[in-house]
Design a protein around this nucleic acid. Structure first.
Lengths: 197, 197
DNA sequence: GTCTATATATTGATAGAC
DNA sequence: GTCTATCAATATATAGAC
């Protein structure tokens, strides 16, 4: 097979296993087996398991727009609907995984207590890119929010609501806590946007 | 030393290491070394590493009131201030750990992708006890909220805000995302409680 | 209940031929 | 770039004397 495909398959397999089992519980041997790749190839492309994690986090960063945001943003131009459309995407992910999946970045962020600087920087970058995309939607609708609202803090709060809701849904293996969280966030937005401004 | 102290020290040491390093990254040998206990004693009291985790989660359950809630509830009777007092306790925990700690239950909930049923039940129980304590505060102030507000969902949302804020604070190693999240939650409460009812 | 010594499996990573 | 074989370290758990 072409050289780049081996590397690519390693990254995709690692992403899949890290997501389903976590980083520590996934062994290099399991990645090799599932990817159909030999040990020598992995250590030809990567310095080790942690470099594979770095590649996975870079992959998530590269795929935020094409996989998470674009499909939602293509369906509507309305900035507030875009925000809740993104949240609905996470609801779908929970549905598809029987509430067992959650947010891959959030999972890694809490599993890795003291991550290598490169890893932590990529976790931060993934969070920040997500938050900035939401922040841009809020800014587009800035004239509809009360002037005293800190729109940067509000974008943080949207990420907070997503991650906190997903965490509870995953623990309960139920959509209910996620849906309750999004409903409360929606109520908050409704009250902020109580009339057109 | 007395028999019960050996068991107790194992649980406390495991709690400390699971909190600082995560469950998977903590080896039984490390727990034994730090606790000053021999292998034979651990397997006398516990079936294995996972049973130690169960004991740690039971410990957290037993200590929710004495360690997390009572110190706050003793300072004020006002139910809304109690809620934000609890959140301020997590801010303190973040401060004390250089934002590296976070919520021990949330950390384990996301690290353990597919936990043993006993473990998952205890994670749920820990979340539920916390949420119910917040819910009781909300119920005490129920007359001050708009009638259409789902107070059960609101207590879920408080836990969501805490966990999501803590996750970001831990990732950024900064209090700012946690404080922003709590500030937005406070703003939401202020708008809900816009006048005395 | 506690002790030391050890079993067995698995971990991440490497060597060196092709 | 890929292959097989294997290393050294560490993992959890156990055996059996005291």
């Amino acid at each position: 097979m072409p050289a780049t495909q081996t590397r690519q398959r390693l990254v995709e397999t690692a992403r899949d296993l890290f997501y389903r089992q976590g980083y520590a519980r996934t062994g290099v041997a399991q990645i090799l087996k599932q990817a159909g790749v030999n040990s020598g190839s992995l250590y030809h492309y990567f310095g080790g398991k942690q470099d594979l994690l770095v590649a996975v986090l870079e992959h998530y960063r590269e795929n935020l727009w094409p996989e998470v945001l674009d499909p939602v943003f293509d369906r509507t131009d309305e900035p507030i609907e875009r925000i809740f459309g993104v949240l609905d995407g996470y609801r779908n992910m929970l549905l598809l995984t029987g509430c067992g999946g959650g947010c891959p970045i959030g999972n890694l962020a809490l599993e890795l207590a003291d991550p290598d600087p490169r890893v932590r920087a990529l976790l931060v970058e993934n969070f920040e890119n997500w938050r900035k995309a939401i922040g841009a939607c809020i800014d587009q609708a800035a004239h509809r929010f009360p002037a005293e609202i800190d729109t940067d803090a509000l974008s943080t709060f949207v990420l907070t609501a997503m991650e906190g809701g997903v965490m509870q849904a995953r623990t309960h293996r139920s959509l209910a806590p996620f849906e309750a969280s999004v409903a409360m966030l929606r109520d908050y937005f409704d009250r902020l946007l109580v009339r057109d401004r």
